[in-house]
Amino acid sequence: MHSVILATAIRLLLPLMLLFSLFLLLRGHNEPGGGFVGGLVVAAAFALYTLAHGEKEGRRMLRVDPLRLVASGLLVALVSGLLPLLVGLPFLTALWSSVPAPVIGHAGTPLLFDLGVYLLVAGMSLLIIFTLMEE
């Protein structure tokens, strides 16, 4: 199945959707958004690309193995949970920086956790999508 319209549109849509997913990720700890939706948007972007160009091209476009994404996402989330242990607080306690950063507001370990979720969700969904689209 090859569609010229989809193939042309996705060239523009892919970067836009990736940017939008980052936007969702970065505002997630204060406002609607977050790692989960962000990850799903990434997955949707690559799924559209895969629909237009096939599963092999999709994998090539992603560059990394989706499993790697899953593993690194879990790792980042785990680290964000372990950081508070260094200052003697229980696992998963949120630590916030007191200085507001320009785009994201007060950063903290929840943002790191969200980043982990983002990678995990994107990786997991793409893993399933690629498996289902394999010929």
Partner: peptide, 15 residues
């Protein structure tokens, strides 16, 4: 979210 994961797995399984 959990349902999403489980159903995705179930789809792969029935395939």
């Amino acid at each position: 979210v959990i349902g999403f994961g489980v159903q995705a797995f179930a789809l792969v399984l029935i395939k």
